[in-house]
């Protein structure tokens, strides 16, 4: 464990707490893409298949349970909660995210570390996470103005993988055997997808204006 990875995990945790705060405090999920939340639940469920077979540390296991649990709770809130589900932007959140799932699975069948059940699903979860934010970014552009908590949620979610990239660079120089090409390339793609959001987020912060994404 290094400071970059720990910072990345904490930033990821903060993004989830901000999202839970927004939904719980405002009893609204307007501006949040249910499809992105469903994709993230799938990402965690397929990535942590080794949850009960490989033990690394209490921290590792606890964080996996937190990520799986929170993503399922958020999906439940947005689908089932009698008040929250009324504020879901159903007509705006129309990204066909099934294509993202199929594309990631096909790519995982082609590019993986080993052709084993766990490795295929691990690679699938890495590829899917890289593009899971697309429905959310599209929804933000369509819904025009972004409320603060939603903007902060996307900002922290985008930042965490950037910390992981620093972690991979650090591990590359400190651990001779470290080789994790799949994560590095997917992580770069994932962070790059947030680039324009970060730009508009920084502009709105600098000018102290509401975050506006161009349609």
């Amino acid at each position: 464990m290094n400071i970059f990875r720990f910072s990345g995990d904490m930033t990821h945790l903060i993004s989830i707490l901000v999202l839970l705060l927004k939904i719980y405090a405002t009893k609204s999920c307007s501006g949040i893409s249910l499809k992105t939340q469903e994709l993230y639940a799938l990402v965690f469920l397929t990535r942590y298949l080794n949850l009960f077979t490989e033990f690394f540390s209490v921290y590792n296991t606890v964080m996996k349970l937190v990520f799986i649990g929170s993503s399922l709770v958020i999906v439940w809130y947005m689908r089932m909660h009698r008040v929250v589900k009324l504020s879901y932007d159903k007509e705006l959140d129309t990204f066909r995210h099934y294509f993202l799932v199929v594309a990631s699975f096909v790519l995982a069948l082609l590019v993986h570390e080993k052709f084993t059940f766990q490795e295929i699903f691990w690679a699938f979860s890495i590829y899917l996470e890289a593009i899971a934010i697309l429905p959310q970014l599209v929804l933000l552009q369509r819904s025009g103005n972004v409320d603060n908590l939603t903007g902060q949620y996307v900002f922290f979610l985008g930042s965490y993988r950037a910390f992981y990239i620093l972690n991979w660079i650090y591990r590359y120089f400190t651990e001779n055997h470290f080789a994790r090409l799949i994560s590095c390339i997917s992580g770069l793609v994932q962070t790059a997808l947030y680039a324009d959001f970060f730009y508009y987020y920084f502009i709105s912060w600098k000018n102290n204006k509401k975050l506006q994404l161009p349609a």
Binding site: D9, H12, R47, E54, N60, M63, F67, E119, Y164, A179
Partner: peptide, 10 residues
């Protein structure tokens, strides 16, 4: 020996 790959990251 191919190093055993461990997914120790989240």
């Amino acid at each position: 020996l191919r190093e055993e790959k461990v997914h120790d990251e989240l």
